[in-house]
Simulated scan of single mutants.
Amino acid sequence: MTIRDTIIAKLTAQFSPLSLEVIDESNKHRGHAGWREGGETHFRVRIATRNLDGLSRVAQHRAIFQVLDQELKDRVHALNIEVLPAIPAEPKS
Rank of each mutant, 00 (worst) to 15 (best):
N27H: 15
A63N: 08
H32N: 13
S16D: 12
E25V: 09
A86V: 01
V67D: 03
T2S: 14
H32Y: 14
V58Q: 11
A13M: 08
G39P: 06
T49S: 01
E82G: 06
H42A: 04
R36W: 08
A59L: 07
L18V: 01
R62Q: 09
A89Y: 07
Q70N: 15
S93P: 13
K10R: 12
H29P: 11
L84E: 03
L72V: 07
T2C: 09
A78N: 07
I64M: 03
L68C: 02
F43V: 04
I81M: 01
L55S: 11
E37K: 15
H29T: 12
D74P: 04
S19N: 12
E90F: 04
R75W: 04
Q14G: 09
D69Y: 07
I64S: 02
V83S: 02
L11V: 11
Q14H: 10
P88V: 00
D69S: 14
Q66K: 10
R30W: 09
T6C: 11
K28S: 15
E37S: 13
P91I: 10
E25S: 12
H42Q: 05
N80C: 14
D24C: 11
V67G: 02
N80S: 15
E71Q: 11
P17G: 07
D74N: 09
P17W: 01
D24V: 07
N80Y: 15
A48M: 03
L84P: 00
V67T: 12
R57W: 10
H42Y: 06
A78W: 03
I3M: 03
R4S: 10
S19T: 08
I23R: 07
F65K: 13
A59K: 07
E40P: 09
Q70H: 13
R62G: 03
T6K: 13
I87E: 00
D74V: 06
N27I: 15
A33T: 14
K73F: 14
E82P: 05
H29M: 13
E37F: 13
V76A: 01
A13P: 06
P85Y: 00
G31H: 07
L79G: 06
S19F: 00
D69P: 02
L79F: 09
A86F: 00
T49G: 01
E71T: 07
I87V: 08
L72C: 05
L68T: 01
V22T: 08
I23A: 06
I81L: 02
D5A: 14
I81H: 00
I64V: 13
S19C: 08
L55Q: 09
Q70P: 11
G31W: 04
R57Q: 14
I23Q: 08
Q66E: 14
Q70M: 12
F15W: 04
R44K: 15
T2Q: 12
H42T: 05
